[in-house]
């Protein structure tokens, strides 16, 4: 009875492993699409290329949502990993929020079409690069949580590092914006876009903090 359930469990196990890996792939790919999309916007504005990238991120977000629901349902329906189930669900949902942040930032660019002066482009690009690096490090830490628990810390510290670097760049950028001669309304709009991007490493750091605790719990 339980033995046959276990044998069929091994079949389902591989499927579930693949779904988790695929979910992390989607997150990683979304971050890369996001990076390209911001660069395209800064260089060419809201062009067709930018819209295509936005569509890519939208598609990734909705596919990741499907995967998240499938993973959650399987974890509960098959009563898998009872000890770590809550942690895994928390991790997947928090990672999913990063996809929402990518999508939300790109939609804001698409809807508001902010005019970003050339002198700020380099800092916006740097901020985006750092944000994406932080997510990449978080994806590696999350993969390690599932396969190689001891390596979680090796990647987590990089997420913390990128978050601090992002703070420095965003502060510098905001100061430059508010020291300029632009209208207050434009200053506020440009600041919002700094925050749209800066929210990403901030959230990645929060997830990394929780991941560190989940990892400690698993090694006990």
């Amino acid at each position: 009875m339980e033995l046959t359930k276990n044998i069929s469990l091994f079949r389902h196990t591989r499927a579930l492993e693949n779904e988790i890996d695929e979910f992390l792939d989607k997150l990683s790919q979304s971050s890369l699409h996001f990076k390209i999309a911001v660069k395209v916007y800064l260089h060419d504005g809201s062009t067709t290329d930018f819209e295509l990238k936005l569509q890519d991120v939208n598609k990734m977000e909705s596919e990741a949502d499907h995967l998240r629901r499938a993973i959650e349902t399987k974890l509960y329906a098959q009563t898998l990993i009872p000890e770590s189930r809550g942690d895994v669900l928390g991790l997947i949902e928090n990672l999913d929020h990063l996809l929402n942040l990518f999508e939300g930032a790109l939609w804001a660019f698409f809807i508001e079409k902010p005019e970003i002066p050339d002198e700020y482009h380099a800092n916006y690009e740097t901020l985006t690069d750092i944000a994406v690096e932080s997510v990449e490090a978080l994806v590696l830490a999350s993969r390690a949580f599932f396969r190689n628990i001891e390596a979680v810390g090796d990647h987590n510290h990089k997420v913390m590092f990128y978050e601090k670097e992002a703070d420095k760049v965003s502060t510098k950028l905001k100061q430059a914006i508010f020291n300029s001669e632009l209208d207050l309304s434009r200053k506020a709009q440009l600041r919002n876009f700094v925050e749209h991007i800066d929210n990403i490493p901030d959230w990645a750091e929060d997830v990394a903090d929780r991941l560190a605790i989940y990892a400690i719990k698993r090694t006990l």
Partner: peptide
């Protein structure tokens, strides 16, 4: 062995 958490769970059950 670096087993996936889910697989380790299945092996542990068995």
């Amino acid at each position: 062995a670096k087993l996936h958490l889910i697989r380790q769970d299945a092996y542990t059950r068995l």
